[in-house]
Amino acid sequence: MLQHGDSFFPSGAVSFSWGIEALGADGKISKADDVARFVRQQLKGRWATSDRPVLCAAHAAGGDLDSVLTADRLMEANSLAAEQREGSKRMGAALLNIHARLETRGAKDYQARLRAGAAPGHVAAVQGFLWHALGLDADSACHVAAHGLAVNLLGAALRLGIIGHVDSQVILGNLHATIADILSVPPAPLHELHAYAPAADIAMMRHETQDSRLFYN
């Protein structure tokens, strides 16, 4: 669990800001409080209500890749902003790539489906079945994913010069309660998948055409 939750694990996450770069450029995220609010909103308004159910369903699939695909496709249908959707798939493909090389069970098979255009490969679906294959229980897998997203977002804010290394740890510490809160109730069923993070969605849509960009989204 430590290995897969650590930012030392090569997951491709550093290339994604999930809207922070554009919101920072617009001055809408300019200080630690803004970052804390944004990350909390991403966790509660998007991850909890859409990534988590997909991750849990893919985990519960118990290695049955057709069931993984069902959850994966629902994620595709529920991702509105192109940079959010494509970013999630690029991270999924990157994670599959490293696990295919590590020979994690199912990775090569699912990667073949992606390459054939037969599966979208959203990161939540990929995490769910890979971490199941590695023996993580569903709750641990959710913790790893939520923590990973928080670290990914804070790292982006830090590299954009919006927060410092102390702030980022303060915020991360405070987010543990948010994550615990989210995970204290069972995940929503797949048919209730939804996300509400309009500021981030719009920022990512605008980011697509911005000239100066360090991040994919």
């Binding site: 090569p10 550093v14 290339s15 790539n97």
Partner: peptide
Amino acid sequence: VEAGACPHTVIREDPTLNIEAAD
């Protein structure tokens, strides 16, 4: 491939997106 302000990371510690792009 965007480097997320980490040009070293994406060719060394975490080259997964570059590997995926090349693949």
